[in-house]
Amino acid sequence: MGNFRLLRAYEPADGGYRILVDRLWPRGISKERAAIDDWAKDVAPSTALRVEFGHMPERFEEFSDIYLHELESGEAAEGARRLLDIAGNEPDVVLVYGARDTVHNHAVVLLDFLERSRSAD
Rank of each mutant, 00 (worst) to 15 (best):
Y67F: 11
I86V: 15
W39Q: 09
W39S: 13
V43L: 14
E58K: 11
M1N: 13
L7N: 05
E11C: 01
A76S: 06
M1Q: 12
E72H: 11
D38W: 14
F53T: 03
E70Q: 01
G88Y: 04
A77Q: 05
D37H: 15
W39P: 06
E72R: 14
R59M: 01
L68A: 03
D65T: 09
A35L: 07
G74H: 03
L95I: 09
D37M: 03
R100D: 14
R33D: 09
A99T: 10
A76H: 00
A120Y: 08
H104P: 03
S73M: 06
Y10C: 09
M56T: 13
P57N: 05
L24F: 08
W25E: 14
R27G: 09
F53A: 02
D92H: 13
H104Q: 09
E115D: 10
L114H: 15
I19K: 04
R27A: 11
S117Y: 07
G74M: 03
Y17I: 10
R82I: 06
F113V: 09
R59T: 02
H106Y: 12
G98E: 05
L84N: 06
D37N: 15
S30M: 02
P57T: 03
D92S: 13
H104L: 13
A40H: 07
A34H: 04
G98A: 12
G88L: 04
L6A: 11
K31F: 08
P12K: 02
A80G: 13
T102E: 15
H106F: 10
D101S: 10
L6K: 08
I66S: 02
E11P: 00
N89R: 15
A120Q: 14
L71R: 00
L20H: 13
L71V: 03
D121N: 12
G74N: 01
D112W: 03
G16Y: 00
E32L: 09
D121V: 09
L6W: 09
L68R: 15
V21C: 12
F113M: 07
L95P: 10
E70C: 00
V96N: 06
R50Q: 05
R33W: 02
Y67G: 00
W39G: 09
S64P: 01
E62N: 03
L6P: 04
I86F: 05
L114V: 10
A9P: 00
G98C: 10
I86C: 06
K41P: 11
R23N: 07
T102V: 13
L114M: 13
L7R: 15
D112E: 15
D112M: 04
E70R: 04
L110K: 11
D112L: 09
L84C: 14
E115S: 07
E11K: 13
